[in-house]
Amino acid sequence: MADDLKYGYKGAEPTQSFGNNTGVFDPNDINNLIADNKWTQFGQLELIETQTVSGVSFVDFTSIQESTYNVHFMTINNIDVSSDNADMNFRLYESGVLETASVYQGAYQQQWASGFVNENKSTGRTFLVANASTGNDTNETGQSYHYFYNLGDSSKYSFKTGHYLQLYSDSTMFVGFGSGVLPQTSTVDGIRLYSNSGTFSATASLYGIRYS
């Protein structure tokens, strides 16, 4: 940017921030303000990464920009598992180390189209729930969305809420929704999506919600 004409002003410079940009801007100014997260541009649901995988037992998101986003949002589509009624789960990386101990907690209400209802809950799991038992016949797939909170805040636990649906091995649709937590004050810098049995195919997209 022009040192003697920052955003069209001489003397005292106006404070620049989201929703409060003042001055005359050239393309370089705008690029610099975008880089500094001070330029007003809408579209705060920001795609971080989409991964489409096939025949894998896990997929990792390791560049989640946890210092930028307080809330992450993930969609998982067309989950196709090789083992009948396999579960899809999450584990979190804390400063690059995958947490595999029985420290996760969760509570999910599950309901089958046939009428069966159950409570899926635990105070000591090795995972957070992504999708539950999915059949492996043709068209027996799973889908879900999830919010993750405070992953990059080492003063807070890492929370999750979500909603999932799939077809069970008898092709009955069932749905689950609920919450989870990694009750440790750590910096979470990665998310692993994995199957507890066999391999899977899926498309998973991770978004960050800026200013959340």
Binding site: Q105, T161, H163, S179, V181
Partner: peptide, 15 residues
């Protein structure tokens, strides 16, 4: 809404 919190007993969420 949906939330995930934590009480003195463990995780407490809701829809």
């Amino acid at each position: 809404g949906q939330y995930s919190g934590h009480s003195s007993s463990g995780m407490a969420g809701g829809k």
